[in-house]
Nucleic acid binder design. Sequence first.
DNA 1: TGTACATCAGTGAACGCGCGTTCACTGATGTAC
DNA 2: TGTACATCAGTGAACGCGCGTTCACTGATGTAC
Lengths: 188, 188
Amino acid sequence: MRYERGHKEVTRQHILDIASRRFRKHGLAEGISGIMKDAGLTHGGFYSHFQSKGDLVRESLLDAAGKKRARLAEAAQTGGFEALVREYLSRAHRDRLENSCAFAALISDFGRLPRSSRAVFTREVKTYIELIAAQLAGGDEAERRRRAMQIFGVLLGALQLARTIEDRDASDRMLEAGVEAALGLGMH
Amino acid sequence: MRYERGHKEVTRQHILDIASRRFRKHGLAEGISGIMKDAGLTHGGFYSHFQSKGDLVRESLLDAAGKKRARLAEAAQTGGFEALVREYLSRAHRDRLENSCAFAALISDFGRLPRSSRAVFTREVKTYIELIAAQLAGGDEAERRRRAMQIFGVLLGALQLARTIEDRDASDRMLEAGVEAALGLGMH
DNA sequence: TGTACATCAGTGAACGCGCGTTCACTGATGTAC
DNA sequence: TGTACATCAGTGAACGCGCGTTCACTGATGTAC
């Protein structure tokens, strides 16, 4: 081989990683050329890794959602439900768009994706809700899922509002109010 | 005058109205030509009404946010806090993107607007929170504002998640869970 | 009252630009003999 | 061991396209005299 075995797969993952950060930080209008340049390549090579920009969007956001979910699961394992909530509504999560939960960064755009891409995110929402539900005590499964839906709602909404509010103190208060609400909803 | 007095202002409002619907339904990438065509005009005339597309985006979304806020205020006046919550988390609001709260439709994009446009939406968030706070009883003002922030969070998050979930029943359950959470947070 | 001119909302061709995508090519290195 | 050839990840010019924006123009109608 002219390149080491596995080289192409490494490059592909690298492109995915760069793309998922750029899409979350700057939106889905980010171009292929900029992404490839950031990955240390030229735009022409893109199509030997992905079929289209649409494919890159779907794959990179799914990747992003998965990684964030893994981080939240880790937080929950270490510090329980409260740690998950505080991780999601942390200042770091508010400020570092490039590592944001894909929903918090781009949910407005999901409805405009082609059907095939959308289905993937519906499933991802369910997985998030199940992750949250697994941290809750009391009630039956349906009731825990219901509370998990409410909690995901307040986490997502509070984070987005905190990002929209420009005044730093008011934004921090939004995050804190969200934490309080989520913890309250988590109690049985 | 070659056109009746006030004609130009009527046209301008018409363009704003069409634009605000199209932006909410299809995103901010909607083009000037399509908007003007929808308004029964040609694209060249756009610049005698607005300085740039950025201006149209800012003005039309501000308009949209204001109108939705007026609707919510009306609902609250008729049926109190619960009516406001049920209006926001109604199936109609979920399904009719073109009449959506601008935040629920486009909040992801707000952070990418130029500074001058963003300030306007920070203020609009505050106004929404004050509208909600005004429907709450008990506590002091700061405490009611705090609960209003939590409620706006859950309204916004739950609506967006309900829009993302493709399964109709699951989506309806998301809305209902959001209503329950918002009403719970509204109680002192 | 009738005619010449001014006004200006709206028209549509044209612009430069960046986009997603294609494709003939490169060149480093593995394989065949 | 040395040489000819095959492989294929990556290159970069070129494409058609729709975008935001500009501008010389149109034509209906108000105003001046």
